[in-house]
Design a protein around this nucleic acid. Structure first.
Length: 211
DNA sequence: ACATTAATTGTGT
DNA sequence: ACACAATTAATGT
């Protein structure tokens, strides 16, 4: 279905100039997809670039052992940075895209994506902006992953300290531990509490009992 | 013993 | 990361 000019103007005024909206209404494909619909499989070629109007899509990257790591979500007015590069480079997709809920989007054919890059400044800008957004999202999730390995480091630190004073009761604050692990106090507090729930330690003020 | 303050820790956003 | 609540230890009266 072709998107109407009216709809496009509603969504994109201030982002794209009128001429671009006209072209978009001619060549764009307006579709609605249901929850769970797979937009893109790993290894597939990409024929068009989606721009999400409503709803959300999650971008996954299958792990080397069959697990699926969540990279980021695409929401309103977002586009997919991977699909942008894949088009230009004729590469296979490295990622998988699945609709998280009922989602409406406009897909733009590859040729136009490239053509508009030089033709419309606003389009070029839009492309760069989606790159920037995705990059920020990725940094965030990388932080999360790194964070998960902190519990190991914390446990190692506790053991090391216990060995140093040759006892099972450490006298420190969460803040001190946080400094040694180069992280924030809150994170240490939360990790310690998890360890307490797992009966690995017992917490009290200025004191940690190792079990 | 009690009130006041400061430091540490817990939690939601 | 930040802001704020809650808890606990320390201190003064």
């Amino acid at each position: 279905m072709k998107p109407s000019i009216k709809l496009l103007q509603e969504k994109f005024t201030g982002i794209f100039e009128f001429e671009l909206l006209q072209e978009l209404s001619e060549v764009g494909n307006y579709t609605t997809i249901d929850e769970g619909h797979i937009l893109m499989q790993v290894g597939g070629y990409i024929r068009s670039v989606p721009i999400i109007l409503q709803g959300s899509i999650k971008i996954l990257r299958p792990d080397n052992e069959g697990r699926e790591a969540l990279l980021y979500y695409l929401g309103g007015m977002d586009s997919c940075a991977m699909s942008l590069t894949c088009c230009l480079g004729q590469k296979r997709s490295e990622i998988m895209a699945v609709a998280e809920e009922k989602t409406t989007l406009i897909s733009v054919p590859v040729e136009k994506v490239e053509e508009w890059m030089t033709k419309y400044n606003s389009w070029k800008y839009f492309v760069f902006m989606t790159y920037q957004k995705r990059f920020e999202d990725l940094l965030n999730t990388i932080d999360q992953i790194a964070f998960h390995k902190l519990d190991d480091r914390l446990l190692m630190l506790l053991k090391k300290k216990a060995k140093a004073c040759d006892c099972k009761v450490l006298v420190t604050t969460h803040e001190e531990l946080a400094n040694e692990l180069a992280t924030s106090r809150e994170v240490v507090s939360r990790l310690l509490k998890q360890l307490e729930k797992m009966n690995k330690v017992r917490l009290s003020r200025n004191k940690i009992d190792l079990l």
